[in-house]
Structures are given as C-alpha cells and as structure tokens.
Design a protein around this nucleic acid. Sequence first.
DNA 1: CTCATTGCAAATGGTTTGCATTGGG
DNA 2: CCCAATGCAAACCATTTGCAATGAG
Lengths: 146, 146
Amino acid sequence: MTAGTTERQAARPDLLAALEDGGYRITTPRRSVIAALERKGEGFSAEELCEELPAVGRATVYRTIKLLQGEGVICKLAMPDGAPKYSMARVEHHHHTVCVKCAAVGEFRHATIERLLRAIGQEISGEIVGHRLEVFTVCSECEVRG
Amino acid sequence: MTAGTTERQAARPDLLAALEDGGYRITTPRRSVIAALERKGEGFSAEELCEELPAVGRATVYRTIKLLQGEGVICKLAMPDGAPKYSMARVEHHHHTVCVKCAAVGEFRHATIERLLRAIGQEISGEIVGHRLEVFTVCSECEVRG
DNA sequence: CTCATTGCAAATGGTTTGCATTGGG
DNA sequence: CCCAATGCAAACCATTTGCAATGAG
C-alpha cells in the first residue's frame, strides 16, 4: 500500500476529479457528500455526515465514503476504543494524531517511522505489507478547557 | 515471527490470579474462557471463542474478554480492515505484527518507537496520551504457501 | 444466604445489501 | 434511453445490556 502511492501529488487533488479518475459518475448526492466533508475536513464520523445531509441516503453516504477511500482522498482511522472516524488525506502517506477528547485529527509524517519499519523488518520473518499508527493526544485546546 | 522481547516477567502471570487480583470471582465459565484462550494464544476472535465454548454464553465470553483486557493480560488489535482480534499479552508494553493472510500475531518492542513518540511530541501541541501501532505482514509460513 | 455472575434474548452501533426507482451522460 | 447510482428498509456483524435465575464464597 505504501508502494504504489507516490504518483499523486501531495497537493490534495480536487475530489470530484478523483471520482472521475476512478470512472465514477458525478451525481448530486456525491457532490453533497463531498461538499460536506470538505467543510468538516478532519475527524468526522459517517453518522455526522448523514445527519448533516438528510437529503442523502445513509447508504449513499457510506458508499461515497468508501469510494473516496478507494481513491485515497479520505482515510479511516480509529479512536482509542476502536470507534471509526474519517479524515481528509492531505499528504500522501501519513499518520494521525487524534485528540481523545474532541477527536480533532492532525497528520504528520516523520522519517523516524520509516526507520522504525526498516528496523522491525529485520527482526521479523515474513514481509511487511502495511502498518497502522495512531497517536492519541489531548490537544492544546482541550488541555486549556480541562 | 516475533523478535521475542522479554522485559518484565515474560512469565505470563497466571490468568486466574489476574482475575483474583482484580477482585473477581473465579467461576466455571471464566475458567473455560481462560482455558480456551490459553490454547489459542495469539490472534483469535471473540466469535471463535464462542464457537469453541458452546456451554458458555456469548455475553459471558465478551464480559470475560473485557475483564482480562482490563487486567492487561490480553489485548485487542485490529486487522487491516478493522476487524477485531484478541491476543495474549506476553510483554508489558508492546506492539503487534499481524499476518494479513493467516492472522498470526507477533509481538515486538522496539526502542525506536519510543524515540519516535518523543520526536512527535515535540512537533505537535498538546500531550500524547497513547498510541496504537500495528504492523501488517505476510508471515513466512504464508509466503511459502503462496 | 446473598450478591456477583450468568444466560438468554432483545437492543445497539456501525455498516452493507437487495431491489425497485431514478437521473446522468 | 440505459445502466450506474440512489433510497429505503431490512440484513449484518460485533458487541452490549436488561433482567430473572444461578452459584460461589
């Protein structure tokens, strides 16, 4: 998964274009979903989108989310308890910080993670095909608010 | 599969003792669940345990799993698609390698991860309160089997 | 005895699917 | 026009919960 993804530019491509690239139609419900998640940007749940888009069927929201995941423009992440959230992908390969209080999501890349994986690769038999890293935080906003 | 790391008493404390330490009763169903997961050891699902223990109610299996998670003797992890698995915890703080083909789970600790977190801590505002790292592999067994 | 624990079954939360209908190209 | 895409509701899967019955200490 890390492997073939170097093609797309770090600059987040237009989401509608991403759909077209995938050979999908640009429909009204899809436009709505995309508009909504551009507004949200970081750390939203599927349910939130559904509530915000009463005109769009729940199934369509989920189908569109999955489509965009497939196109690599949004990604799924998990809160400490495993509850799913979604977030816009801004850089190609990255990891997340998630505030456990307000669910604010940050992204980071860090060369150390690459080194880490290389080191692990030498310790285990078999081949590393992917990984998931989430760093849970209490963001500065929430620190202040207590 | 694992670069076995033994930091604390690798000798896994007796699971029944863990329950007693938590102030929980040692009951027949709990004994059964514990026996079953000692047999499995790595990378099992709750459903698997339920199937293996028709005499124990589904709810009790889940309740016991959660108890043991609380006592820190088993841990929950997630496959690439988010599907949950459980695994015996052998070392105190560790991370997992999970084979995406056979779900075999390995554990590792690596000093680099600690360094990584420290480095991230300096890049973000707020405080790091936890993290999740899973490394997905195709284990050597599965490499051979194709 | 008594209260923690159990089993069951129904409830939940997140997500998917079957199918008849609709609308984009 | 036609097939991809939609909406709805029902299905699904992992997990949780309410509650009466049970059993460990």
